[in-house]
Design a protein around this nucleic acid. Structure first.
Lengths: 171, 171
DNA sequence: CGTGAAAGACGATACTC
DNA sequence: GAGTATCGTCTTTCACG
């Protein structure tokens, strides 16, 4: 289930192109990769079935939707027990302001990425939805100035090596 | 540019459906929304031009690509000057391990979401790409146990209200 | 601004090497 | 596993309401 999947250069090329534009047609894909369209379709189908491709997502601009202020909330849930954590997670996920939620190691248990209309909404969110809950011991709010998506996700060995295995040298 | 865009119920319905599956055909979209396929195409084209829809992205499973370990790195860049911050951002974005990068308020200036093969790679990443740089004053590493994507992003007033304006009451 | 039909393009399958 | 041909379906355009 969580096993790494064997990917050949054709798969990688396809993935790289699809990450630039997930709506590229199989014809264009085939032309750029240098194989037949049916091969592309076959590869993509296989990648979907094997779970490498989880789905297609629409990227929206929060600011254009009237959510110009984004923030990260570090949250301590105490006591950190399953019967409190489960409902907490579901509650946070259901908030319209929530974009994504992380369960982390370290002093703060959760990190919540939220998008709101402005400072007043953020204050209301923190007070009404977080600190108002008994299991929330602490909330630390950090505003997001700017945000960057990074290069396409590719296997570690993709590039030009294969020499290192588990990085057991370099000491 | 960063202005909020006026969206009618048809736009919102389309956005909600496309966020579930960005590859829904205009035909299915039309059937569910209750308008003609060509109208759907027109709306989506308009939403792309107005910048509400930034693009279509492929969601991949990092674990299936041999990147089973994800982490968040809080980074202090000191001194926090433009001539140091700019190159730092570009360097981090270019790392294969980087997924996304945030510039934040608070004691830690940046948060980096990374995906690596395992603990050894994470250690190497922190030592070679972060603490080795002179402008990086501090790095705090937190592992990601689990991660959730939250509900579709929609305008604040979408739902059932319109009563609150700037939340100036409730005190 | 939305609709409906027509033309071109695309995705998916079957067949062949 | 990869390429070619084909059919059914979808996307996209355009004139019209």
């Amino acid at each position: 289930m969580t096993d790494s999947v064997a990917l050949d250069p054709v798969d990688l090329h396809i993935l790289r192109l699809l990450q630039n534009d997930a709506r590229t047609t199989y014809r264009d894909l085939a032309a750029q990769v240098g194989v037949a369209p049916s091969t592309c379709l076959d590869r993509v189908t296989r990648l979907r079935r094997s779970g490498v491709i989880l789905g297609h997502q629409l990227r929206l601009d929060p600011a254009k939707l009237g959510r110009g202020l984004e923030a990260l909330l570090s949250v301590q849930v105490r006591p950190h027990r399953r019967d409190l954590v489960g409902p907490f997670v579901e509650r946070i996920r259901a908030l319209p302001a929530s974009l994504s939620l992380f369960h982390l190691t370290g002093p703060d248990d959760f990190l919540v990425h939220v998008a709101v209309a402005g400072p007043a909404d953020l204050q209301r969110l923190v007070l009404d939805e977080f600190t108002a809950r008994r299991e929330v011991a602490r909330v630390e709010t950090r505003l997001i100035f700017q945000q960057w998506e990074c290069g396409p996700l590719l296997p570690p060995e993709a590039g030009a090596d294969g020499a290192r295995e588990t990085a057991a040298d370099s000491w």
